[in-house]
Amino acid sequence: MKLKLRIWRQANADTQGRFQDYNLDHVSADSSFLEMLDLLNEQLIQAGEEPVAFDHDCREGICGMCGVVINGLAHGPARGLTACQLHMRHYKEGDTITIEPWRAAAFPLIKDLVVDRSAFDRIIQAGGYVSVSTGSAPDANAIPIPKKNADLAMDAAACIGCGACVAACPNGSAMLFTAAKVSHLGQLPQGQVERHNRVAAMVRQMDAEGFGGCTNHGECSAVCPKLIPLDVIGQMNRDLIRAVLSR
C-alpha cells in the first residue's frame, strides 16, 4: 500500500523540530509499524538523507523501548499493543499517518522520535523494590500467597515502562507507572514491610522529576499496551494517605 507519513524531525534538544512529509510505497499489510519505518529509513539512506531515529529493541511488545504517538494516540490505534506489535493491516491505501515522539516535560527529547525516559528509572530507584539482598531469602513456599493477590500483583507487574501513560496524559503525569509498581509490591506479603516508605519515596521522586499530577482523565490506562488498570492509582493514593498519616 501507499502511505503519506508526517514525521517529527528534530536533530537534538537544542534545535527546533518540525514535521516532515514523506511518501512511502510498497508497504506490506503484514509488516509491523516499525518495519514500515525500517522501509522508510532504507529509502532515506539510499537517497542520501538521514534516517528517522526511533527507539526499539525486542519488537515483541515486552521490552518497552519503542513508543511513538501515532495519529494522536500513544502506540497507535490498537488497544493493548505497543507500536512494534501494531501491524500495517490496520491501515489502508492512501492513509496519512502522523508520527511524533512522546511529549512530556519529564521526557526530554534526544533526537527525532527518541526521548529520555530515565526519570522512570529514578522513580524505581527511589523505592520500587523489596530490600532483600542476595542469599537472605527463606524457602520460596514458606509464605503462601492467595492466588488472587498473586494474580493482581502480576497484573500490575506487567508494566513495561514504555512511557505511553505519560505521553497520553494531558498533565504528563506518571501516576499509572508509579502506581503499577506500588500496587505490584503492595499486593504481596514480601512488600509489606516497606510499603509506606516505598510509596512516599516514589511519589516524592515522581514529583521531583517534573511529572504532572493526576486529574482522573484515564487516558493513561486507555493507551497502556499492557492494560494496567486505573484501579492501581486509587490503591496508591490510599497507600500514600496511610503513609502520611502513619508518620
Binding site: V132, S136, A140, A150, H184, Q187
Partner: peptide, 8 residues
C-alpha cells in the same frame, strides 16, 4: 531469592 523480591 526471586520470590523474596516479589516476583509474582
Amino acid at each position: 531469592q526471586c520470590v523474596a523480591q516479589g516476583v509474582p
